[in-house]
Amino acid sequence: MRDMRPPKTESTAEAVAVPVRSRLSLRRIEARHVRDYGIIAVTAVVFIALSLASSAFFSVGNLFNILYQNAPLAIMACATTLVVVAGNFDLSVGAMYAVAAISAAEMAVRLGPLAGILFGIVVGGFTGLINGLVVTRLRVNAFLATLATSLAFRGFAIAVTNGFLVEVRDPGFTGLGRDKIGPVPVSVIIAVVVILILQFVLSRTVFGRYIYAVGGNPGAASISGVRVSTIVLATFVIGGFAAGLAGVIDASSVASGDAQGGQAFALTAVAAVALGGTSIYGGIGSVWRTCIGVALFALITNGFNLLGVNPYYQDIAKGLLIIFAVALGAMVERREGR
C-alpha cells in the first residue's frame, strides 16, 4: 500500500489533501559535505598554493622527497586507522617503532641483514600483541594501556642499547631504506603496497567489516556473532607490525637503530588519522582518509621548510588544523540534530 503514494512533486503549496514529501535536490552543498570532503579540498589548495609560492616545490625530486620522508609515517598512520576504527587508540606507535628499529639493528649485526629486517618487523608485531592483550584481556582502556606500554617499550629499547646508536653498515641492510627502483625509493613502493593492502582489508573484507561493527557498537557486533576481542587484538597486532616495518625502514635508511627514535610519531600518527576524518570514537573512517591527513601534514612540513618559515609555526598550523577538522565534524553532528 506504500505504492499508493502519489508521484513526487516539487510544489507543496497546493498539496494539502494528499500530503507529498518533496525530494530535496541532492546537489546542494551541505555542511556534511564540507566535513567529508573539505580535507581533500584543503590539501589540494595547499598543494597548488605551494606550487605557486615556491619554484622548488613542484619538482619530481622534491615530490619524491616528500614521499620518501613520509613513507614510514604513512605506514604507521594507516595501520593505526584500523585500531581507531575498531574503537581504540594507540599512543605507542613511536615506541614500537624504536623497539623494532634497535631489534633489527642488533640482529642484523649478529645474524645478517635479512634476519635483522625480519626480526625487527616481528618484534613490532609482538609489541602490538602485548598492547592488544593488555586491552582485551586485562580490559585496560586503550589510551592508558598504550601510554603505559609505550613507556615500557621505550625503556626496554634504551636498556638494551644503553642509549647508544646501534650501527649497521651492511648495504644489504641499508638497501631497504636507501635503494631506488628507477626514480622511486624502495621504501615508497613498500609503503604504497602496504597502504593499498590496508585500504582493501578495511573496506572490502569481512574482517574489515567486523572492525567497523566493533567500533560502532561492540554489543551489537557481539550479538551478531562477531568475536569482539579477537578483532580488537588483531588490529593492535597489525598496528604493531606496521610500526615495526616503519622502524626497520628508518633504521635501514640511517644505517642504525636508535632507541630514542620515533618520538614524534606517537602523536603524529594518531593526529593524521583524526585529521583525515576518522572518528576517534570508532566505527567511522578509512585508510585513504588517513593518507590525506598524512599528505596534508607532509605538505605543511615541506612547504614551510622550503619557504623558510620557523618550524614552530608548522606545529601551530598543524595543531590548529586538527582542532578545526575535529570541531567541524562535531558541528555537523549537532546541526543534523543527533
Partner: peptide, 29 residues
C-alpha cells in the same frame, strides 16, 4: 544490542551472515 547506528543498512543487515559465504568469497565481501 541490535544495530551499529553509523553503519549502513547493508552493513548492518549482513553482519551476522558474513561468515557463511552468502555475500563473501575468501573473506572478501
Amino acid at each position: 544490542d541490535g544495530l551499529c547506528m553509523q553503519l549502513s543498512l547493508r552493513e548492518n543487515t549482513t553482519l551476522p551472515h558474513l561468515w557463511s559465504g552468502i555475500v563473501s568469497r575468501a573473506g572478501v565481501v
